[in-house]
């Protein structure tokens, strides 16, 4: 059973990812969104193995397994992991949807993500390979 504190910590990311999924699937279709998720999960997993616990299918996204892992290991850097995931996702999304449409989605998501310390929706997102943990 996941505690309330952990649950709340993960919930906001899950809400954001669900919104991202729905907004992208509207334009790209579920197959392309699944492919995009698979790609970004792979990239982020090179640094944060736990992202592989993210569950996604035609119906959407679930962070339940990540929450359970966080319960076992509260030191898990989930914030960094999700920030990197979202930034990379949005970066590829811009190429797929065109920058204008991606900007609309980015604005909508930014409202949801206002409480985050960092802005994963900064224009263009973090570049591939950038590592905010460096130094």
């Amino acid at each position: 059973m996941v505690s309330d504190a952990i649950g709340n910590r993960i919930k906001r990311y899950e809400t954001l990812l669900k919104e991202m999924w729905a907004a992208s699937a509207k334009y790209l279709g579920a197959f392309s969104v699944s492919l995009l998720m698979e790609r970004v999960v792979w990239e982020v997993s090179l640094e944060y193995k736990e992202i592989e616990l993210l569950q996604y299918d035609q119906d959407g996204v679930s962070c339940a397994r990540i929450a359970a892992r966080l319960e076992e290991n509260p030191e898990l850097p989930v914030e960094d992991m999700f920030m990197k995931f979202i930034a990379r996702y949005v970066e590829i999304l811009a190429k797929l949807l065109g920058y204008e449409r991606a900007e609309e989605i980015r604005k909508r998501l930014r409202i949801l993500g206002e409480e985050f310390n960092e802005d994963p929706f900064a224009k263009g997102g973090m570049k591939s390979g950038e590592d905010k943990n460096r130094h």
Binding site: L28, G29, F31, S32, L35, L36, R39, I92, K95, L96, S128
Partner: peptide, 15 residues
Amino acid sequence: LELITNSLIIIYQAD
């Protein structure tokens, strides 16, 4: 057309 271009951009990070 959509499927081909989407997947190439996603898989190969095509610009």
